[in-house]
Design a binder for these strands. Structure first.
Lengths: 209, 209
DNA sequence: GTCTATAGAATGATAGAC
DNA sequence: GTCTATCATTCTATAGAC
């Protein structure tokens, strides 16, 4: 037998089912509105069983948050320090749009967490996000100094990218309502991604091919 | 005495205090997380008194929502059918930024309402917003046909404007955290407004003066 | 590991005196 | 109109049998 205690089969299965259900419920109802009994019910297990795997609602919520954080980190890495702003920003915008498409629930939970004053992720805002943002502001300022892009405010540019890309996740219900009540097709989503990329890049003075 | 029954003095005062407190609490904790006792406490009255003025938590919430709706209508009117897209869009973007500055709490409540599937405002999305959006898409398409702006997807442009301007309200906590822990000064906010306007207008091919 | 039953706390709303 | 006391419900969390 291994030194690493292998997780038992039902544990793996149940934990995964709980996390999927929890992400749904937290995104739909917020932390306060979510009930452990609803999460358990959607996961297909009795409520007491949920508390066996995750002792408190808050512990479950923090597990969800840390998963979302790792997705955030993945996107952050796509904004690398490269000489070509069209490359770097284009890749970053497309990565963020892809994440909004693949993980809209996580994006909504994240947005609500910030709207509520970031009770769980304040530390992240003050350390990881702050450092990451400062480093990217420096890169953008260098592009400006090298006359590769217009002399825009770097922070405002970053906020615009975050806002626009996350909007497709956070407001997907509204976008669906304005699309005849159904979600955007893959084709339309791709088109939106290209439009967003084009407007932002052209907007900061990058010549589009 | 007037035919219109004048509202008594304490009623006016208390209703106003309740609405201000309710907007705060709903934006911070969401509908489910908000408690009538906390709202009453912030309004400086006993909980039973709150229920005297607003029989249920939901009735109070709907009053708040209808106030936010009237602000939305006000912003919508600034996007008028004019020949100059720089004028029309610039005015609209600036009006939206101003609203995010003046009414961040309302914006957050609105965002959460949509994230939760718009339980109270689904009708608004399907009628007023849908009609308004369709009419503005037509105007944008006309500008494109007249070669006044690039041939971008009108919907994506509108979403970008909504996302970016509302981000300054909905994510003000994060923006503050990235600004040394304090809110943006009037000066910085003005600068952000100009940056946002410039990037979007230039991004759709409008020559900036 | 699973599940029934329930304890203990919080909350929305109201009764009824003033 | 105001306010204390309280009911009824709901929710988190756990005990304890299996």
């Amino acid at each position: 037998m291994n030194v690493m205690q292998k997780k038992s089969k039902p544990r793996v299965k149940n934990e995964e089912a709980i996390l999927i259900a929890a992400e749904e419920v937290f995104s739909e109802l917020g932390f306060a509105g979510a009930t452990t009994s609803l999460i358990a019910s959607r996961a297909g297990i009795p409520k007491a069983n949920l508390h066996y795997y995750y002792p408190t609602k808050e512990a479950l919520y923090q597990t969800i948050i840390s998963r979302i954080f790792s997705i955030w980190l993945h996107a952050a890495e796509t904004f690398d320090d490269c000489d070509d702003p069209a490359d770097a920003l284009g890749r970053y915008i497309r990565a963020k749009m892809e994440i909004s498409r693949m993980h809209p629930l996580g994006s909504k939970i994240w947005a609500q967490e910030i709207m509520h004053g970031a009770p769980q992720i304040q530390g992240f805002l003050e350390t990881t996000l702050n450092d990451w943002t400062a480093s990217r502001v420096k890169i953008i300022e260098r592009w400006i100094a090298e006359r590769k892009i217009d002399a825009i405010d770097p922070q405002s540019l970053l906020y615009m990218i975050w806002a626009t890309t996350q909007h497709y996740a956070d407001f997907e219900h509204q976008i669906g309502a304005l699309n005849g009540g159904k979600a955007l097709s893959d084709e339309k989503y791709k088109h939106a991604t290209e439009t967003v990329t084009q407007i932002i890049l052209k907007g900061i003075g990058i010549k589009m091919v």
